[in-house]
């Protein structure tokens, strides 16, 4: 390896964003399936892996994007499913008491008539999320301009190739 190649490799290893406790990436492998109601397929769904070393608040998500086979999914058709509730992903910030614990299943459901055709699909996800806690402190908005750990949320990318299973 040349010096440049070694430097590039070292950067790749040492500058990965830290998703504490989640070596597998954000998308749960093998979880893709179509979503069918009364024999009508109205979308598809897949599960997420836990994104921290502990449970997290859904309100910490600032942005979620999904692309399937290279094509971005319109955000207005995506909901997050947790504890029997379906929450539009652009509204997660308002659900500040929804806690995703270690043993809860958390899925993304994309409404799309007909779902995905049988076979393999590459799901790519980009999400932006604040840490649940930090080490800058204050009361309400007092001093919040110092809270770089919240003002600069993590940008995480994950991809997974999955086959549609089930109906």
């Amino acid at each position: 390896m040349t010096l440049e190649e070694r430097l590039k490799k070292a950067r790749e290893i040492l500058e990965q964003p830290m998703i504490m406790g989640n070596p597998a990436g954000p998308i749960k492998a093998g979880s893709l399936q179509n979503h069918t109601v009364c024999g009508v397929t109205t979308g598809y769904t897949f599960q997420l892996n836990n994104l921290s070393y502990r449970g997290i608040w859904l309100s910490t998500f600032e942005d979620i994007r999904i692309a399937v086979d290279g094509k971005e999914v319109p955000q207005e058709y995506i909901v997050m499913e947790l504890k029997g509730m379906k929450l539009p992903i652009r509204d997660l910030g308002g659900h500040s008491e929804m806690f995703w614990g270690a043993e809860d299943v958390c899925s993304l459901l994309v409404y799309q008539i007909g779902g995905l055709p049988a076979g393999k699909h590459r799901i790519a996800m980009d999400f932006v999320r604040r840490n649940d806690f930090g080490h800058t402190v204050g009361n309400g908005t007092d001093g919040y301009e110092e809270a770089q750990e919240f003002l600069n949320p993590l940008h995480i990318h994950g991809e997974e190739e999955m086959e549609v299973v089930g109906k």
Binding site: W57, N131, G134, A147
Partner: peptide
């Protein structure tokens, strides 16, 4: 969990 709400502690 001071990260719970966007824009404030």
């Amino acid at each position: 969990d001071n990260g719970k709400h966007k824009g404030r502690f």
